Amino acid sequence: MADQLTEEQIAEFKEAFSLFDKDGDGTITTKELGTVMRSLGQNPTEAELQDMINEVDADGNGTIDFPEFLTMMARKMKDTDSEEEIREAFRVFDKDGNGYISAAELRHVMTNLGEKLTDEEVDEMIREADIDGDGQVNYEEFVQMMTAK
């Protein structure tokens, strides 16, 4: 299944994987998964984290390695993001709930994920998604960005 991913997608997933893999040992533990999910405003229980890991832990060693992570991402993409997942993601970014993602809100979430971005990089990300040019990202623009192939 992971063989249907483009090189660009694999590179993006590698970057995402390293955000989860806090200690850089090449595997994601339940603790690391929990840290990232909490930084995104989720509050999973230990059991939920274990279930999430077990779902993709092909070799049964209790952690997720990069090939397992790729399989999980490929699977998720095949079920292409349901509207509800996209709306949920939008809410994570839209901290003040005004229906727009500002540069400050984007920077806040990315920083929580451990991504240190310059102001230019954040502005560039907003510009790429900002179709109507108002300097922020509304829900429609967010959907376009998330579903762009």
Rank of each mutant, 00 (worst) to 15 (best):
A2P: 08
A2S: 10
A2R: 00
D3S: 04
D3L: 08
Q4P: 14
Q4R: 12
Q4W: 00
L5P: 11
T6I: 12
T6K: 02
T6P: 13
E7T: 03
E7K: 08
E7F: 12
E8D: 11
E8V: 11
E8A: 05
Q9P: 05
Q9I: 07
Q9G: 08
Q9V: 04
Q9L: 13
Q9C: 12
I10Y: 02
A11E: 01
A11S: 09
A11T: 13
A11P: 03
A11Y: 00
E12A: 15
E12M: 02
E12C: 15
E12H: 09
E12Y: 02
F13N: 00
F13Y: 13
F13I: 13
F13R: 01
K14G: 00
K14Q: 08
K14T: 08
E15W: 05
E15C: 04
E15M: 02
E15S: 14
A16T: 10
A16N: 00
A16D: 05
A16P: 03
F17A: 00
S18P: 11
L19Q: 13
L19P: 10
L19K: 15
L19S: 06
L19G: 04
F20Q: 10
F20V: 15
F20A: 01
F20Y: 14
D21A: 03
D21N: 09
D21E: 14
D21T: 00
K22V: 09
K22L: 04
K22I: 11
K22W: 01
K22G: 03
D23Q: 05
D23R: 08
D23Y: 11
D23V: 12
D23K: 15
D23I: 02
D23E: 11
G24D: 12
G24I: 15
G24H: 06
D25F: 15
D25H: 07
D25C: 14
D25V: 09
G26T: 05
G26W: 10
G26D: 10
G26F: 08
G26E: 03
G26C: 10
T27M: 10
T27F: 03
I28W: 04
I28Y: 10
I28E: 02
I28P: 00
I28C: 02
T29W: 02
T30P: 08
T30I: 12
T30R: 15
T30C: 01
K31E: 14
K31H: 14
K31G: 09
K31Q: 12
E32I: 07
E32A: 14
E32M: 03
E32N: 09
E32G: 12
L33W: 00
G34I: 02
G34W: 02
G34L: 11
T35K: 01
T35G: 03
V36Y: 00
V36I: 12
M37Q: 09
R38W: 13
R38C: 08
R38G: 12
R38E: 14
S39V: 14
S39C: 09
S39N: 06
S39L: 14
S39D: 01
L40M: 14
L40P: 07
L40S: 09
L40N: 15
G41T: 07
G41Y: 00
G41K: 05
G41V: 09
Q42E: 05
Q42D: 01
Q42F: 10
Q42A: 01
N43C: 07
N43H: 14
N43Y: 12
P44R: 07
T45R: 11
T45W: 07
E46R: 09
A47M: 15
A47I: 09
A47K: 08
E48G: 13
E48F: 13
E48A: 04
E48W: 13
L49C: 01
L49T: 02
Q50T: 05
Q50D: 04
D51H: 02
D51P: 04
D51S: 10
D51G: 11
M52N: 14
M52L: 10
M52T: 12
M52G: 14
I53C: 14
I53S: 06
I53V: 13
N54T: 04
N54P: 08
N54E: 04
N54G: 03
N54L: 00
N54R: 05
N54A: 00
E55T: 00
D57K: 08
D57R: 15
D57C: 06
A58E: 14
A58T: 13
D59H: 15
G60Y: 10
N61K: 07
N61V: 14
G62F: 12
T63N: 05
T63E: 03
T63V: 08
T63W: 05
I64W: 06
I64M: 10
I64T: 13
I64Y: 13
D65V: 12
D65H: 03
D65E: 11
F66S: 10
F66R: 05
F66D: 01
P67I: 08
P67A: 10
E68T: 10
E68S: 08
F69E: 06
L70R: 14
T71E: 03
T71P: 13
T71H: 06
T71N: 08
M72L: 14
M72S: 00
M73N: 14
A74Q: 05
A74F: 02
R75W: 07
R75S: 10
R75A: 10
R75V: 00
R75L: 15
K76P: 14
K76M: 03
K76H: 09
M77V: 11
M77P: 08
M77A: 15
K78N: 06
K78W: 01
K78P: 00
K78L: 01
D79K: 08
D79Y: 10
T80L: 12
T80C: 05
T80D: 07
D81W: 10
D81L: 06
D81F: 06
S82C: 15
S82D: 00
S82W: 07
E83T: 01
E83H: 13
E83V: 13
E83N: 00
E84Q: 08
I86S: 07
I86T: 12
R87S: 07
R87Q: 08
R87E: 14
R87I: 02
E88P: 08
E88H: 05
E88N: 15
E88W: 14
A89T: 07
A89M: 08
F90G: 08
F90R: 01
F90E: 12
R91C: 03
R91Y: 15
R91I: 03
V92F: 13
V92I: 11
F93C: 04
F93Y: 10
D94E: 03
D94Q: 04
K95G: 04
K95Y: 03
K95F: 05
D96R: 02
D96H: 05
G97H: 03
N98M: 15
N98S: 09
N98C: 07
N98G: 11
N98D: 10
G99D: 13
G99E: 01
G99R: 09
Y100Q: 15
Y100I: 07
I101C: 14
S102I: 06
A103K: 10
A103Q: 06
A103M: 15
A103E: 00
A104G: 12
A104R: 09
A104M: 12
E105G: 11
E105R: 05
E105F: 05
L106H: 09
R107H: 11
H108M: 14
H108G: 01
V109L: 00
M110P: 04
T111S: 08
T111I: 12
T111M: 03
N112G: 15
L113V: 05
L113P: 04
L113D: 00
G114V: 05
G114M: 07
G114W: 06
E115T: 04
K116H: 15
K116W: 15
K116Q: 14
L117W: 00
L117T: 03
L117R: 05
T118K: 09
D119L: 08
D119R: 10
D119A: 15
E120H: 14
E120Q: 02
E120M: 03
E120S: 14
E120F: 14
E121D: 12
E121Q: 07
E121H: 05
E121P: 04
V122N: 00
D123W: 07
D123A: 08
D123Y: 11
D123S: 11
E124V: 12
E124T: 15
E124R: 11
E124C: 15
M125P: 02
I126C: 05
I126K: 00
I126S: 13
I126F: 09
R127W: 09
E128D: 14
E128K: 08
E128A: 14
E128N: 00
E128P: 04
A129W: 04
D130A: 03
D130Y: 08
I131T: 13
I131A: 09
I131Y: 10
I131K: 05
I131G: 06
I131Q: 06
D132H: 01
G133L: 03
G133Y: 15
G133N: 09
G133W: 01
G133A: 09
D134L: 04
D134K: 00
D134C: 08
G135W: 03
G135T: 03
G135L: 01
G135K: 06
G135R: 10
Q136I: 07
Q136K: 00
V137Q: 05
N138G: 07
N138Y: 14
N138C: 15
N138R: 02
N138H: 10
Y139F: 13
Y139P: 06
Y139K: 04
Y139W: 09
Y139T: 04
Y139A: 01
E140T: 06
E140M: 13
E140A: 11
E141M: 05
E141W: 05
F142M: 12
V143S: 03
V143F: 03
V143M: 14
V143L: 11
Q144N: 03
Q144E: 15
Q144A: 00
M145S: 05
M145V: 10
M145N: 15
M146K: 05
M146V: 12
M146I: 09
M146A: 07
T147A: 12
T147V: 15
A148L: 05
A148Q: 15
A148E: 00
K149D: 05
K149R: 12
K149Y: 14
